[in-house]
Amino acid sequence: MAWSLSRKVSVALLGILLSTMVMTGAFGYYKFQSVLSDQVNSRYSFVVFTIKRKIEDRLALGLALRALRQIQELAELEKARDSQILGIQIYDSNREVLFDTDRGTIGSRVPSTWLEPLSAQGTQPFSLTDEDSALVGLPLVNTLGKVEGAVVLRYPATYLEQELGRLLQRLAGEFAVVLLGSAVLSVIAASWLLRDVRQRLVAMENTLNQSVTKGAPAKPGRDAFEGDFVRFCGKAREAVEQIGEASDEVERLDRLA
């Protein structure tokens, strides 16, 4: 396959276009994903925060965390409101699950890593992942300022991917169409832009052939370059003739003897 000039230019352009598209696409996607997951997180943080507030208000009334029976109903109510919520758990600082929308797990233990965010004692929500679910949680602080436990909300980790998957497919289709269109456009346009170069090269080659081999007089060039080239053709022609004449003369002299 011959690599014509226009093909080389098109390939260079399309290579740049493709990498730029991939780069902007990836960056845009990451940004969008982070904004969206922030948004999802902030919504669930809010839900968790309302539960935390209710629990802490009751703790302030002087009740023990494990004695707050209404919390179970509260958690179940919040879960019922949003089908995406997989579950809400309240565990204490000994990792024991005190309340859970999945009542079967009450009394079991959460992984020890779930205690780590509690030591930070921040008021900012923390995030955890657990198998295929994502968790957002807040520590529960008693009136002494000590962490008694935490409330966490569980939602599918693939939630974002599901949301984004369809969107990405649609965009990928458009991506391909636009790329293809650009490819066709750039090949045609590059070929058109380089037409002049191509034509003049062909013209000069013809001049060369005509002038050197057939001795036709060269047309004057359009610019300095072609002018130089025409002079070159003339000189080459002249040289061919001179050498030819010289050869003839040498031959004549050779025969003379």
Binding site: T20, M21, T24, L179
Partner: peptide, 11 residues
């Protein structure tokens, strides 16, 4: 033309 147009459209 080839870079800005498709990228703008897509963006």
């Amino acid at each position: 033309l080839v870079l800005v147009t498709p990228l703008s459209i897509l963006s």
